[in-house]
Design a protein around this nucleic acid. Sequence first.
DNA 1: CTAGGGTTAG
Length: 590
Amino acid sequence: MLKSMSISEDHLISLITSSTAKPHLRQIHAVLLRTSLIKSSDIFHHFLSRLALSLVPRDINYSRRVFSHRTNPTLSHCNTMIRAFSLSETPSQGFLLFSSLRRKTFPPANPLSSSFALKCCIKSRDLTGGLQIHGKIFRDGFLSDSLLLTTLMDFYSTFENSNDACKVFDEIPERDTVSYNVLMSCFLRNKRTRDVLYHFDNMIKNGSVNKPDGVTCLRALQACSSLGALDFGKQVHAFIDENGLGGALNLSNTLVSMYSRCGDMDKAYEVFGEMRERNVVSWTAMISGLAMNGFGREAIEAFEEMLKCGVSPEEQTLTGLLSACSHSGLVDEGMMFFERLKSGEFNKMKPNLHHYGCVVDLLGRARLLEKAYSLVESMEMKPDSTIWRTLLGACRVQGNVELGERVISRLIELKAEEAGDYVLLLNTYSSAGRWEKVTELRSLMKEKRIHTKPGCSAIEVEQGKVHEFIVDDVSHPRKEEIYKMLEEINQQLKIAGYVAETASELHNIESEEEKGRALTYHSEKLAIAFGILVTPPGTTIRVTKNLRTCVDCHNFAKFVSRVYDRVVIVRDRSRFHHFKDGFCSCNEFW
DNA sequence: CTAGGGTTAG
């Protein structure tokens, strides 16, 4: 009798651990109840794990029922259930279960329980609950459990508290690659991109312990993307290849995106071309990259190629495609894709806020402002501040004061107005020649204590040597040479037909007010002049700017590219401009 | 039961 029981027990366990489908598990459940084998703690554990964690699709309610029928659950049973809650749509239930451990018939918690409960708090965005758990971890003396502390770091990182996340990191007794990765994710989430690169560097230098893995490289690449750090990105790329991590699809996709966001489309194409397989994310990265760099035709070609390959687009793919059309002034094409999107041609997908944003931008650039406005009014979802801001940008380009005022009042209604919005309105007034309005708005801004961000441009001349400039910067050690260079450039450009047009653009309010200076120099002009000064002829000049570039500087760069025979690549707040032979890849100004 | 993870308007 006993012997036959034990055979069926083994048999049952192997049945349990190999099943993931609900009907299958229901049958097993029936057998367990009938034979009373459910009372065995071990079998119950296997069954619950399967049901709660491996069932596809998951059924948290079924798991909860099974768990609540257990009379004396062990800690493993409870932990499995807490983990299941952390993965479910009702993560707060997991925290409740954790809180009741040691009470009632439950055993006291161990580090694993705390770790799963923290995950519940992360998912349900329960800050107080997580802080309670941290206190309990401290009282329980679990502060030496590396796995638990790594999860705790992730908790602080989710609540944008990178300082406390770092403190926890310092306490971890045995840091492994995963703890480093969580730290890097934390920095990335909290905009501390330079810290990501610093740690990546350290991990390489430290040798064999905590060697970067695929995830580490992914994070480093994302940091390079947001910094525009092309050289560092290339180093990470080299590391990936040297360590045989290159085959991973997600890494290749991130590489394509990184090169695009650093303005190196040749390298982006190269990586994309060498990929063994490409999914919709790869195509989306490529299309968005081309869009951001002003290669609208190529983006459309890539989209069509993708359809030919039988890959279905996602929402982000259409976002990239539509933004490609707007950046390159391809109005008819853009509207055609938008119509196709609305008709449900792409998997019955409907336009989202991003899509509308692109189309508003597209119409705005095509001087179809009223059409853009009525499109916003006709949207089935509530327009967000960004949509209004896009429209405001279009008003600025055309000097449409009346609509501009309407739009800013919508932004004020939403309580979402920013300093940049007032600058846009200010420039709308000035390009329409409404100087009395300019003065009025300026004093209003002073009253409201609205401070604008000064324009700032950076240029990397030697490896890793970055020089930063602000408007009319006089702090650079070589300022005299730079200003002399600028004067010379201005003269050369004038001969070639360049006419300075500085009156309509008021980036920096403070400096505009202190009159008396004949000419002000936006930061990108200073950076470009410095680039010409210190790099050998023919070198590509790469400049990164924190704001949008203005008409005059755009024009200036076009002329520089022809007169000095240089490729000039300017990275805007939102995109790239590739200047060559007097032309720019974009169609932003005319 | 063993942490972390691809693309995304302006």
